Simulated assay, not measured.
Amino acid sequence: MDYASLETFLAEGKAALAKGPIAMILVEDLVEVESTIRHHLKAGFAAPLVFAPEALTLPGDLAEKIHRIPWNMHAPEALVRAVNPVIAAAPPGTWMYYCFNAEYLFFPFCESRTVRELLAFHTEERRAAMLSYVVDLYAPDLEKNPNAVNLTEAMLDRSGYYALGRPDPENQGHPKERQLNFYGGLRWRFEEHISEKRRKIDRIALFRSAPGLTLRPDHTFSDEEYNTYACPWHHNLTAAIASFRVAKALKYNPGSTYDIPTFRWSNSVPFDWSSQQLMDLGLMEQGQWF
């Protein structure tokens, strides 16, 4: 269903928020929008909210399965202005998720289990949010794929990932409890082209709505417990978002595109689109879920 604005959706389509999990797909350009929507429908999200420009066209069978909201992702604070009103409108405790186009959610055993099963288990562990690593994908041949996107030949880095303590400015810069900043992938290898505040690869992509909860521009939440990677007593599930977003940006940006003839290096490996590969590489944690 199409809506004239976000305000119209919140007034007329609020029933879509009555039962989660709710997926919000934020469309920055027209690259792989259809595959992004289909991937998340298959994962178990019903009727995603798609924030998209007017130029986007979708097949009829797909258009009828989504709630389409006109949105300009290049406007200031476009992310938080889209997500936070939906959080506020949803019933408290509703599981929600957000991503951008050309991004694909993976979680442990997603080939045989749905996102609803994942979140049911996470809820039983008394967790209200789930850490996700944004894993950069890229095409191996940039002459063949100048926008760096190729789903059938996608590659990722098998090493080069690390974490640092997240300083707490309210506690003399000491690290925050159970919070880390994670780095790696293209943001690490080509950091000279990426501002410092955009180099992290961690994102709290799955979370439960709550009164007063807000998403911040750096992909963290106003409730600090949401930003933790695990509960105090054991490791929890984490997810991964396989993403062409950074590769696209580096090739679209005139300041970096001519400096990068290829994204391939000695630690590039083909992405096999499986949760097992991401777990084997340490990019996803199954916790106590077997």
Rank of each mutant, 00 (worst) to 15 (best):
Ala230Arg: 15
Asn150Gly: 06
Tyr183Lys: 03
Ile194Lys: 01
Gly185Ile: 09
Asn181Lys: 04
Ser222Asp: 01
Gln179Glu: 13
Gly212Asn: 11
Arg187His: 09
Thr228Glu: 15
Pro211Asp: 14
Asp218Gln: 00
Trp233Ile: 13
Tyr226Lys: 15
Ala163Val: 10
Glu196Ala: 05
Arg158Asp: 12
Leu156Gln: 11
Asp223Trp: 03
Glu143Cys: 07
Glu177Ser: 12
Phe190Lys: 05
Leu206Ala: 13
Ala210His: 09
Lys200Asn: 13
Asp218Phe: 00
Thr220Ser: 12
Phe207His: 10
Thr214Phe: 07
Ile204Pro: 06
Arg198Gln: 04
Lys144Cys: 06
Leu213Ser: 09
Leu215Tyr: 10
Ala210Pro: 04
Asp168Pro: 02
His174Phe: 11
Asp223Glu: 14
Phe221Val: 03
Trp188Arg: 15
Thr152Cys: 05
Trp233Met: 06
Ala148His: 11
Thr214Ala: 14
Gln172Gly: 05
Arg203Pro: 00
Ser222Pro: 04
Phe182His: 15
Arg178Ser: 08
Arg216Tyr: 02
Ser159Thr: 12
Tyr229Gly: 12
Ala163Asp: 11
Thr214Met: 13
Gly173Glu: 10
Leu180Asn: 03
Gly173Asn: 11
Glu143Arg: 13
Glu177Ile: 13
Asn171Ile: 01
Cys231Lys: 15
Arg216Met: 06
Glu143Lys: 09
Leu186Ile: 02
Phe207Pro: 08
Phe182Pro: 00
Glu153Val: 02
Glu191Val: 00
Lys176Pro: 03
Leu186Asp: 00
Tyr229Phe: 15
Phe221His: 14
Phe182Tyr: 08
Glu196Thr: 02
Asn150His: 07
Tyr226Ser: 13
Lys200Arg: 15
Tyr161Cys: 10
Lys176Gly: 02
Ile204Trp: 12
Pro175Arg: 02
Tyr229Thr: 07
Asn150Glu: 08
Thr228Tyr: 09
Gly212Trp: 06
Asn145Glu: 07
Glu196Phe: 00
Ile204Lys: 12
Ala163Cys: 07
Asp157Tyr: 14
Ser222Ile: 09
Asp223Phe: 10
Gly184Met: 08
Glu170Leu: 13
Arg158Ile: 05
